[in-house]
């Protein structure tokens, strides 16, 4: 199914004159292209008969939409208080060390983008690391090399 058709399908779920399909449509476009490039935003806008500016305005409000390219894999470490008091910062730094890039950046080989994120809603199982949008719980700095090797070895694209 083309992106256009997929968007029309999700559009049909919501009432006619509503813009409710914007978020699901952006999600579909991001799954297709990895990030929301200006062209992807234009494509979504045309499919929804709205403007690219509107789509960008919405997309840029939400943390999960990427307006610049990201790596093949996305690693997000929760650094809010519950995770932080049990070592989230050490986990971030371990990833930075393994990947050779700062949080907020992508490793030089383009494989992994690392981010610090706000509370992921798994505080009791800290530290939470979302790898390609799926949670790993109780992650310790020591677990990081294995995760990075896993991501560098297996080359499947992220998605949900």
């Amino acid at each position: 199914m083309s992106l256009y058709e997929a968007i029309q399908d999700v559009r049909a779920i919501y009432p006619d004159d509503s813009e409710s399909a914007v978020l699901p449509a952006l999600r579909l476009a991001q799954a297709e292209y990895g990030w929301l490039s200006p062209d992807a935003l234009r494509e979504v806008a045309d499919a929804l008969e709205t403007t690219p500016a509107y789509c960008k305005s919405v997309a840029s409000f939400y943390d999960q939409f990427h307006l610049v390219p990201i790596g093949e894999h996305l690693v997000e470490v929760c650094t809010n208080v519950s995770c932080a008091v049990v070592g989230a910062q050490q986990v971030v730094e371990a990833f930075e060390g393994e990947l050779g890039c700062h949080a907020g950046e992508t490793s030089a080989d383009g494989k992994v983008t690392l981010r610090a994120v706000e509370c992921l809603g798994g505080c009791g199982w800290a530290t939470i690391v979302a790898v390609d949008n799926h949670y790993r719980t109780h992650v310790k700095a020591d677990d990081v090399p294995a995760i990075v090797r896993e991501l560098q070895g297996v080359s499947e694209t992220h998605g949900d």
């Binding site: 990427h66 610049v68 971030v92 949080a103 907020g104 950046e105 981010r115 610090a116």
Partner: peptide
């Protein structure tokens, strides 16, 4: 602790 707001200066997000 690195907070996302501080990461924004080199953020791939916004």
């Amino acid at each position: 602790v690195l907070a996302p707001i501080a990461m924004h200066t080199h953020s791939p997000v916004a």
